[in-house]
C-alpha cells in the first residue's frame, strides 16, 4: 500500500482475514525498526500492534510472535502486514522458493545440520 492516504482505524484486524502482503509466511522474520518513521497521528495502532512492536525489538518469526502473544497466526500475519505497510517493521521473507528447489540452499541446510549434530 502506498500513497500516504488516511490509514483506516482498526479493531484488531478490522475484519480482514487476509494480510495485505501475501508474501508473509509463518516463517517470515520480523524486527521492529529502531529508527522507524514517525507514525502519522491517524495511524491508529491498536494494543496488539504495539505488543508486536515491543516484542520484536530483535528478530523473530511470525509463528514465534503468535505463540508469545497468544494470538492466532492469521491475525499476526495481518497485523505484521499493517506494520510493514507503515514502515515500522522490517520483514525478511522466507528464502525465495522458485519452481526449482535451489540445490545450494539444500546444501547449506545440510552442512548446517551436520555441524550441529
Amino acid at each position: 500500500m502506498s500513497g500516504g492516504g488516511p490509514v483506516r482505524p482498526y479493531v484488531i484486524t478490522g475484519g480482514r482475514s487476509r494480510p495485505t502482503r501475501t508474501e508473509l509466511a509463518f516463517e517470515s522474520l520480523v524486527v521492529a525498526l529502531a529508527d522507524r518513521p514517525e507514525l502519522p497521528e491517524h495511524a491508529l495502532l491498536n494494543r496488539e500492534h504495539r505488543r508486536i512492536l515491543d516484542l520484536c525489538h530483535s528478530l523473530l518469526s511470525i509463528a514465534e510472535v503468535a505463540a508469545h502473544l497468544g494470538l492466532p497466526l492469521g491475525v499476526v500475519k495481518v497485523l505484521v502486514g499493517d506494520l510493514w505497510d507503515l514502515g515500522a517493521v522490517q520483514v525478511l521473507p522466507p528464502v525465495p522458493q522458485a519452481e526449482r528447489l535451489p540445490t545450494t540452499l539444500l546444501e547449506e541446510v545440510l552442512v548446517g545440520l551436520r555441524q550441529l549434530r
Partner: peptide, 17 residues
C-alpha cells in the same frame, strides 16, 4: 507456556521450513 522469547541472531537473513 512460552518462556521469554529467544531471539535469532541479528545476522540471520531468512528462514526455511
Amino acid at each position: 507456556p512460552p518462556a521469554a522469547p529467544q531471539y535469532l541472531p541479528p545476522s540471520v537473513q531468512g528462514a526455511v521450513k
